[in-house]
């Protein structure tokens, strides 16, 4: 019981701290690059959260989610540039298309054991990448221009503070949605499938249906992120969608902590900062990055959230110890 209380309290503290920081960030930071940077962090938070739903809660791994990121990006590009749709609607439709693709992939593949599922996701991601590279119309190598992010006709890219707030709103919506899904019957079904598919099946849960659902939801998130990124950068180029970039999302989840609401948030932030720090590392970049991944998995497989949890527990223990002593001495009481 004590543990449960700690987790809830921890979540609330983090929520408060992050929430306040997130809202007042543009007031603290006026450097437009930094706002652009955090806008991208927000995009990655959405993507990583999506993957977390699949991996942390439903127990399925995918190393090919970049394919849905790509689908989201290209669909929205085509819709806004050639069908003249407004950006916001286009992003949502693109995410839906990505979700449909995810569902299609999940239908046959969700029954595979994790290594083979991983391989199938890699194969699909490679296929989508090759497909993009082969469609000349999409100008894969030079890149295709994309309409800037805009809402109700206002160009958000003109000032990255607007972009930041726009993405912040969507991050909040995404995290809220994830929280609701996780707490609901669907979320419990996901976790049941993750923990033991046989018994889940035995309890009458339609494992197949929920696995496909988890996939579709996660790819919706990732597709949404991809679409936003396309409008933010005003450019889609095939290099962004190589299969290897899928590992980034998994790594973000691991860095932050799977199976939590704020894990992907912290993970995305940490990941982006590491990326930036390595930007001038030239030849050392790969070694350092690979080393960081391995160290994290060795010492902190639960990610930063687990470390924070440990810290919180320690503090709570000390705090309660102090309380006991104070009570026994009849001293001051904290509330």
């Amino acid at each position: 019981m004590k543990g449960n209380m700690t987790v809830k309290k921890l979540n609330r503290i983090i929520l408060l701290v992050l929430g306040v920081i997130a809202v007042i960030l543009p007031l603290l930071i006026t450097n437009s690059y930094r706002l652009y940077f955090f806008s991208f962090v927000g995009i990655y938070v959405v993507a990583a959260s999506g993957l977390d739903i699949l991996f942390g809660y439903a127990g399925m791994i995918s190393f090919g989610h970049i394919a849905y990121y790509a689908i989201g990006a290209y669909v929205t590009t085509l819709l806004t540039s050639y069908a003249g749709l407004p950006v916001m609607a286009s992003i949502l439709i693109a995410a839906a298309v990505a979700a449909a693709a995810g569902a299609l992939v999940a239908l046959p593949c969700s029954k595979l054991k994790f290594q083979f599922l991983a391989l199938a996701s890699i194969a699909f991601a490679n296929f989508i990448y090759q497909l993009i590279c082969n469609i000349e119309f999409l100008q894969p190598y030079r890149g295709m221009k994309v309409e800037p992010l805009s809402i109700f006709g206002v160009n958000l890219n003109s000032d990255y503070r607007y972009t930041y707030y726009f993405i912040l709103v969507w991050v909040v919506i995404a995290l809220l949605a994830k929280h609701m899904i996780v707490k609901s019957k669907i979320g419990r079904a996901f976790m049941a499938c993750r923990d033991n598919t046989r018994s889940a099946d035995g309890m009458g849960i339609n494992v197949r249906k929920y696995k496909v659902m988890a996939f579709a939801i996660s790819t919706f998130y990732v597709g949404f992120a991809g679409a936003c990124a396309a409008h933010l950068n005003e450019l889609v180029v095939c290099n962004t969608y190589v299969q290897a970039n899928s590992f980034n999302y998994v790594i973000m989840c691991i860095f932050g902590g799977v199976n939590t609401i704020f894990g992907p948030v912290i993970g995305a932030v940490v990941f982006q900062f590491i990326n930036e720090a390595l930007a001038s590392a030239t030849a050392w970049r790969d070694i350092i990055f690979g080393g960081i991944v391995m160290l994290f998995i060795a010492f902190l497989p639960g990610g930063c959230m687990s470390a924070l949890r440990g810290l919180e527990e320690k503090l709570a223990a000390r705090f309660s110890l102090g309380k006991k002593e104070a009570a026994s001495k009849g001293g001051k009481k904290d509330d």
């Binding site: 991996f55 791994i61 190393f63 994790f114 290594q115 991983a118 590992f247 998994v250 790594i251 691991i254 030849a283 050392w284 970049r285 790969d286 070694i287 350092i288 990055f289 690979g290 080393g291 960081i292 991944v293 391995m294 998995i297 060795a298 497989p301």
Partner: peptide, 19 residues
């Protein structure tokens, strides 16, 4: 460490060797 995490270890290892 098993399963997916082991896969990620091999991924990290490949980056380190390449670097």
């Amino acid at each position: 460490v098993t399963g997916v995490y082991m896969l990620l270890i091999t991924f990290g290892l490949s980056r380190v060797i390449n670097g």
